[in-house]
């Protein structure tokens, strides 16, 4: 083979690979692995590997894995149990997929900056937190934008009070808790809170707001800050080192996940520690399945742990994609 010929063939191979990539890219837009509706799912949105790992929580095994093309950071499943909305801070749109078909159904032009999402208002609306615009955007389930409520800068965590019909929005940078009326979609009040707040829990009785955080600057957050839910008054600090950022109430227990120390705390409603366990590596996410199992995703350990909420025993551990950042639950529908 002469030098010229070799050059030609390299060039041809290059052209083929380019066209193959284009072809694959255009194809892959269509379908992901479909997931049957009769599976109770826990999906982890994995930031580092840009993927979603779907886990059958009953069988405690991986049901499917979607390798995504965009840097999604989180998602929610709609009340229909099929529509899977994925968002990412760096993305202009939030994309909706059907779990059952694996196809993309729609895209919402949300603009960049979406960092959190929640199904609210009696499961009829979706609230999307836009950190770039410092706002919460409300959509109905059909993708129609209902309103946009301005908040203090850098909103991150949201928690809904169905009884009061308000949405609490934590400002990450501004030491402020905003209250948004879910009917009017307007901000109805601000309360001063601690800095770098992240993670919020409204106790089931609706009286207290438990807020976590990472800590400001070089200082590390070691405590849970408890506020009065109605007037925002600071009540107390509950030590839960280090960096408590995720909460969950199960019956009369509060579970607190501290990612700085990889600790899962079990507390009573007064904040007395009833148990603690080390779980995962740098865990960010905590969830409770319908069959009463706690799920903890280790961001650095790339795994999902199944914890018994009674005795905090780790029952199972499943390897997921790299960097699980969100756990999304879906109940089986049949």
């Amino acid at each position: 083979m002469t030098k010229g010929n070799r050059k030609m063939s390299v060039f041809k191979a290059f052209l083929y690979s380019i066209s193959l990539i284009v072809f694959l890219a255009s194809c892959s837009n269509h379908t992901y692995e479909p997931i049957s509706s009769d599976i109770s799912l826990a999906a982890t949105v994995n930031m580092k590997s840009m993927s979603v790992t779907f886990i059958d929580v009953e069988k405690r095994e991986i049901a499917a894995e979607w390798q995504l093309e965009k840097p999604y950071t989180g998602g929610i499943v709609f009340p229909d149990g099929d529509t899977f909305l994925l968002y990412g801070k760096e993305m202009e749109t939030a994309d909706l997929f059907s779990l059952q078909t694996g196809e993309k159904k729609a895209s919402w032009d949300t603009g960049k900056g979406i960092v959190n999402a929640k199904v609210i208002n009696d499961q009829k609306e979706i609230a999307l937190v836009n950190q770039n615009n410092s706002s919460v955007i409300f959509y109905d389930l059909d993708g129609e934008k209902l309103a946009e409520a301005q908040t203090e800068s850098s909103p991150l965590s949201i928690v809904e009070s169905e009884e009061e019909g308000v949405l609490f929005v934590l400002s990450f940078k501004n030491q402020t808790l905003s209250k948004v009326n879910l009917k009017t979609k307007k901000t109805i009040g601000d309360y001063p809170i601690h800095g770098a707040a992240s993670g919020a829990l409204l106790l089931e009785d609706g009286t207290q707001l438990w807020l976590g955080g990472h800590g400001e600057g070089a200082t590390i957050e070691k405590d849970i800050h408890v506020y009065n839910a109605s007037d925002g008054e600071f009540i107390k600090k509950i030590p839960a080192p280090v960096m408590p950022i995720n909460f969950l109430q199960y019956q009369q227990s509060i579970f607190v996940l501290s990612h700085g120390s990889n600790q899962l705390y079990k507390m009573d409603l007064d904040g007395n520690i009833m148990g603690t366990v080390k779980v995962g590596a740098n865990p960010f996410e905590l969830a409770l399945t319908s069959d009463h199992t706690l799920l903890v995703a280790g961001y650095d350990s790339n795994d999902l742990s199944f914890i018994n909420p009674e005795n905090l025993e780790e029952e199972d551990k499943i390897e997921v994609g790299n960097g699980p950042f969100k756990i999304v639950l879906r109940e089986k529908t049949e």
């Binding site: 950071t73 960092v115 990472h214 960096m243 990612h259 700085g260």
Partner: peptide, 16 residues
């Protein structure tokens, strides 16, 4: 040992 210094909070876009 400070997880903050070790970039443990990185996905939260902490201004540090």
């Amino acid at each position: 040992s400070n997880p903050r210094e070790l970039s443990a909070c990185l996905p939260f876009d902490i201004d540090y």
